[in-house]
């Protein structure tokens, strides 16, 4: 029997659309450092980076470790407050107003 994660009762996953290719995945952040991403078949089919990776998105050859476009879109959504975060982990005053423009806060590493 598959049981749901008890933590999803406190905070479910939120859909996030990739700014680059519009693939949609489910995202949950428990903190600034932690990110969970649930893909489904439609998202996997839409993601450009995944489709163009040599293995076609398989983790077997570890060449689809992550999608950079999606990673950036998630970071932006987190900074703009579109992704709710678990209580207590958001920085003081950090629950940015939803819908704030994301362009100026690109996060890259």
């Amino acid at each position: 029997m598959i049981r749901p994660d008890n933590r999803l009762a406190d905070l479910p996953m939120t859909p996030v659309e990739c700014q680059r290719c519009h693939a949609t995945v489910q995202v949950r952040k428990s903190s600034w450092q932690q990110t969970s991403v649930q893909w489904d078949e439609a998202g996997a089919r839409t993601c450009l980076e995944r489709r163009s990776s040599p293995s076609g998105g398989s983790i077997r050859d570890t060449d689809f470790f992550t999608c950079a476009g999606l990673r950036e879109s998630i970071a932006q959504a987190a900074l703009s407050g579109e992704i709710p975060m678990v209580e207590g982990s958001a920085p003081r005053g950090g629950r940015g107003p939803a819908g704030a423009p994301a362009e100026e806060r690109a996060v890259t590493q």
């Binding site: 903190s31 969970s36 991403v37 900074l79 703009s80 920085p91 005053g93």
Partner: peptide, 25 residues
Amino acid sequence: VERFEYELDTTRPNEVWEKQVQDNL
């Protein structure tokens, strides 16, 4: 079997995130 990712990245400290949020606000 659908892809699930769980990531924990502590190389970017909380303060960096915080500062960026404050700057945005």
